[in-house]
């Protein structure tokens, strides 16, 4: 059988790859894609914990978390893309490092 640790290490790896993408990619659409990777890593974790530690016939906590995360991911993508497109219209760029409105 597969021990729990495998899943957790896979999830951690996926999460860190995603994080690297978020931190290092220039294109903001690619940043969004990396965020999706991170969210998927979280989902793997949640389901792994459900399967290994909380497997009962009545507790659906893991499931509920995953469902809500799906909703969050969808919402995040929709809003993120809308922001990117709106920013693209006004600035003619999608490079994350060009969005410097936060500069003091």
């Amino acid at each position: 059988m597969i021990p729990l640790s495998w899943y957790l290490i896979l999830a951690a790896l996926l999460f860190c790859i995603g994080l690297f993408g978020v931190l290092a990619r220039k294109n903001s659409v690619a940043v969004l894609m990396s965020v999706e990777l991170m969210l998927n890593a979280v989902n793997i974790n949640l389901l792994a914990f459900w399967r290994y530690l909380y497997l009962t016939s009545t507790a659906y906590n893991g499931f509920v978390f995953v469902v809500v995360l799906f909703a969050v991911a969808a919402a995040e993508t929709a809003v993120g893309l809308a922001i990117i497109i709106s920013a693209y219209r006004s600035r003619k760029t999608v490079a994350a490092e060009d969005f410097t409105a936060l500069q003091g």
Binding site: V22, A96, E97, F99, T100, A101, L102, Q103
Partner: peptide, 17 residues
């Protein structure tokens, strides 16, 4: 220090993490 404050979200986030 103002050199750090360039308004780039990714740098901020890298620093934070």
């Amino acid at each position: 220090l103002s050199g750090l404050q360039r308004g780039r979200v990714q740098e901020y986030m890298a620093g934070g993490i």
